[in-house]
């Protein structure tokens, strides 16, 4: 489409631009009408349909961007995914520690089995062997969890890319929704029963027994 703007129209636009503060609505309407009239013939029905489709697509993209920003993908990468990964790592660590304790106890039993009469000693050794076999679980669960952690990291990378692409939208959303911008949300002074259901804490977050004892003692 190649539209040539007539010199007269350019002159009118320049004049209006020069006195932007005083130009009336009627004058603007007149210029726009002239402009549209000049464009006649350049805009086919197909073009108008295409423009309408593009406009609709543009609105759809804007709405999608807005909805994605409202989901706060920055929180997913900053808080939720790292927390989930830490929890899973803690499972691996805790099961490894427990398995080592079980194995140590079994090794002691196995040594003692050698001091028992052969028939009883064999029975103890057989039971100990079954425990060794059962302790395979730590390797298997550890490997499965490692796979899940790898998947979470992959998701994290994808979400990070999303955050980078929608950074402006997210900033706009935060600016217009300040109540959702900051987490954790304000909790009431007295936690509810639901607030108290946190499950086991990660090692760094967990209170030591001595700290709990000290807290209990502070009530006396």
């Amino acid at each position: 489409m190649t539209a040539t703007v007539p010199a007269e129209l350019i002159g009118r636009l320049s004049e209006l631009q020069g006195r932007m503060q005083t130009v009336s609505r009627a004058e603007i309407a007149e210029v726009v009408s002239t402009l549209l009239a000049e464009m006649e013939g350049d805009l086919s029905e197909d073009n108008l349909k295409l423009y309408a489709e593009l406009e609709s697509l543009s609105r759809y993209i804007l709405a999608a961007k807005s909805e994605i920003a409202a989901l706060r993908p920055d929180e997913i990468t900053a808080q939720h995914l790292p927390k989930a990964t830490d929890e899973l790592d803690a499972i691996v660590g805790a099961t490894e520690e427990a398995t080592n304790s079980i194995l140590a106890a079994m090794e002691t039993l196995e040594t003692l089995a050698g001091e028992l009469p052969p028939e009883q000693g064999d029975k103890v050794t057989e039971a100990v062997t079954q425990v060794y076999e059962a302790c395979n679980f730590q390797d298997i669960t550890g490997q499965r969890i490692t796979k899940v952690v790898r998947t979470l990291k992959h998701i994290e990378e994808k979400v990070e890319a999303l955050v980078a692409a929608f950074g402006d939208e997210i900033a706009k959303y935060k600016a217009t929704h300040p109540e959702a911008a900051e987490e954790p949300e304000q909790k009431p002074a007295k936690p509810t029963d639901a607030d108290l259901l946190n499950g086991p804490q990660l090692p760094d977050d967990a209170s030591k027994q001595a700290e709990i004892d000290a807290l209990l003692a502070s009530f006396d």
């Binding site: 490894e96 398995t99 080592n100 194995l103 062997t129 302790c135 730590q138 390797d139």
Partner: peptide, 12 residues
């Protein structure tokens, strides 16, 4: 790479 597995195999 799992120390527990090394321990199990060693004991067996």
């Amino acid at each position: 790479d799992y120390k527990t597995m090394l321990r199990i195999i060693r004991n067996l």
